[in-house]
């Protein structure tokens, strides 16, 4: 190991200043974090309300795999900055434009995974349910949805983390939140920018861990620790 250089000392100092900024403004940062969570929550809610039913319906009828796969590819290729900027030009500056941009960003993984989860449920299980006299809706609600939960919730988790992690960028389009501090070094100086960055990091990690915990809770007991049973070879023969 080389001895500590002047540059290292400067770094250490910078981060101490950043922590001091957090210690000096806990209320302000908490309020900014809440703003960010509000925006993220609204966006995630819309993404779930639109993409989840669509994915489940397409998966139930085993139709539109192209739409589901396309959503995942295009979703990844859409840079968040481009989405945020484009919706700003369409919807003006403020809450709504950012909410819609983040909702579009989150819809991709939710659509793909809910389609995949339902589509992969073994056909024989659905067939026997039909044989027992279940209607299509009952099959969806009592068989396919519970079996799809692991994949489906993974999609929601990916979307949530993506949205929370992207929300700071929305600050450039009037989104508020911790990003406001990060993009405004002129007012908050480097210590504020780094302090807010640390808070953003902690917030994302928190959301990630919280959702992983919820995922374990909502997974039907029989499916915990396993993957969804599926059989590709059979599907291809049909």
């Amino acid at each position: 190991m080389t001895p500590m250089t002047l540059a290292d000392a400067a770094n250490l100092h910078t981060f101490v200043d950043a922590l001091r900024f957090i210690g000096d403004h806990p209320g302000f940062l908490a309020q900014k974090a809440l703003e960010q969570l509000e925006l993220s929550g609204a966006a995630l809610g819309i993404a779930i309300a639109v993409a989840l039913p669509l994915g489940v319906v397409l998966g139930h009828f085993h139709r539109g795999s192209g739409v589901a796969i396309g959503a995942s590819i295009v979703g990844r290729a859409l840079p968040s900055l481009v989405l945020i900027a484009a919706f700003l030009t369409l919807l003006g500056i403020g809450f709504v434009n950012n909410m819609v941009a983040l909702a579009v960003l989150g819809s991709g993984p939710i659509l793909t995974n809910s389609y995949d989860g339902v589509d992969r449920v073994d056909n024989e299980i659905a067939e026997s349910a039909r044989g027992m006299g279940m209607t299509g809706w009952q099959i969806v609600r009592r068989i396919e949805l519970p079996l799809a939960i692991p994949l489906l919730f993974t999609g929601i988790r990916i979307a949530a983390v993506t949205i929370v992690a992207t929300a700071p960028i929305a600050a450039i389009a009037g989104g508020g939140g911790l990003g406001d501090v990060i993009v405004n070094q002129a007012s908050y100086r480097l210590s504020g920018v780094l302090g807010a960055s640390l808070c953003v990091m902690a917030l994302s990690a928190l959301v990630f861990v919280a959702l992983a915990g919820i995922q374990i809770g909502v997974t039907p007991r029989g499916l915990r620790g396993t993957t969804v049973v599926h059989d590709h070879s059979r599907k291809e023969q049909q």
Binding site: N11, V164, I182, L194, S197, V200, S204, V207
Partner: peptide, 15 residues
């Protein structure tokens, strides 16, 4: 991967 890119960029600047 959960670290937001904007935050990671900023946190690397001192280095």
């Amino acid at each position: 991967y959960t670290i937001p890119s904007l935050a990671l960029f900023q946190l690397l600047i001192p280095f």
